[in-house]
């Protein structure tokens, strides 16, 4: 941990301090520091900076915070560990460097986890995203028995082999902050690192949102509208891809991929509302995967996708 940090910026005293420390650390490794993608996603992996950039031959290093929405995980603000909206810190390095594990461990040291005092372990955990047609091998990273990160070597994304392979790190920021701050309830996290009347907690910022969105996700989200939105997003994605598909290069992948993201989130909401049966569930997942695959195929025909 940087001893020069003022108290309110210390990663073990402030949620935003933790986040800024990670950004700084990965900026020092040559990553572009991006901002969250401006759409609702279930995980940082959905950001085009990961999904699409993992495809094709061109090197890429990026890090960013991504608010992640898991409508089903809402608990009306009553569970100390579960949220329907939380933050992931996402790092993607392509090709995965030889010392990626060391870099990861140094990032933990940077946020105040003393590796001589804490038991950090790499425990087998294979990652798969059926909606993205993606999978990889890696670990969940344990700190004193708590899972604090996911560490994955992407093998396939959107149904395409990754070559070179990207290394992906995903930090669960709330969990990590709870650990370094020594807090047992997420809503008690110190958000801004101030004390006394100036202190703002995670609960001050998000508790009301958790309550309102839980009501929305489970009780009130307009299912007729959502079903229609799913169909519209699916149709638009296909049409946009067709519109960009004139010559050897594909000319309009990113707007189409937005619609794929949209469809995925709408599906998650419908799922939380309990209007999708077990058998339908599989077919919705497949439909989103088809969109993701089509976007991946188109991406490989763009400049950033490495097309000649």
């Amino acid at each position: 941990m940087d001893p020069a940090l003022p108290p309110h910026m210390r990663p073990d005293a402030s949620f935003q301090g933790l986040l800024l420390t990670l950004q700084r650390f990965w900026a020092d490794q040559g990553c572009v520091i991006l901002q969250p993608y401006d759409m609702e996603v279930g995980a940082g992996t959905f950001h085009p900076a990961t999904t699409l950039r993992a495809l094709g031959p061109r090197p890429w290093k990026a890090a960013y915070v991504q608010p992640s929405r898991r409508p089903k995980d809402g608990r009306y603000g009553e569970n100390p560990n579960r949220l329907q909206h939380y933050y992931q810190f996402q790092v993607i390095l392509k090709p995965s460097p030889e010392d990626l594990q060391d870099l990861y461990l140094r990032s933990l040291a940077a946020i105040g986890i003393d590796l001589r005092l804490h038991d950090v372990r790499f425990v087998e955990d294979d990652w798969e995203s059926p909606t993205l047609g993606a999978w990889g091998l890696g670990w969940e990273c344990w700190c004193d028995g708590m899972e604090v990160s996911q560490f994955t070597y992407f093998q396939q994304v959107a149904g395409f082999e990754c070559a070179p392979v990207s290394g992906e790190l995903t930090y669960g920021l709330e969990r990590l902050a709870m650990y370094v701050q020594g807090v047992e309830n997420v809503y008690d996290l110190n958000f801004n690192g101030r004390t006394g009347t100036e202190k703002v907690t995670y609960g001050d910022v998000f508790k009301q949102a958790e309550q309102e969105y839980s009501r929305h996700n489970f009780e009130h989200a307009d299912t007729a509208m959502l079903l229609e939105q799913f169909r519209m997003a699916e149709g638009a994605c296909t049409r946009y891809l067709a519109a960009g598909d004139g010559g050897p290069r594909h000319l309009m992948v990113l707007p189409a991929y937005d619609q794929c993201i949209k469809a995925s989130h709408v599906f998650n909401l419908l799922d939380a509302r309990g209007v999708i049966s077990v058998t339908e569930r599989q077919s919705y997942i497949l439909r989103v995967r088809e969109l993701a695959k089509a976007c991946g195929a188109a991406w490989l025909r763009t400049e950033a996708g490495g097309a000649a």
Binding site: R116, H118, Y179
Partner: peptide, 25 residues
């Protein structure tokens, strides 16, 4: 009883505390 991979300089106090917290949750 937990099995750590580390002979920690504090005799494992933090490791035990951390694991205990997860087990309680």
């Amino acid at each position: 009883i937990l099995v750590s991979n580390l002979a920690a300089s504090d005799g494992g106090a933090q490791i035990v505390a951390g694991n205990g917290r997860v087990i309680r949750a």
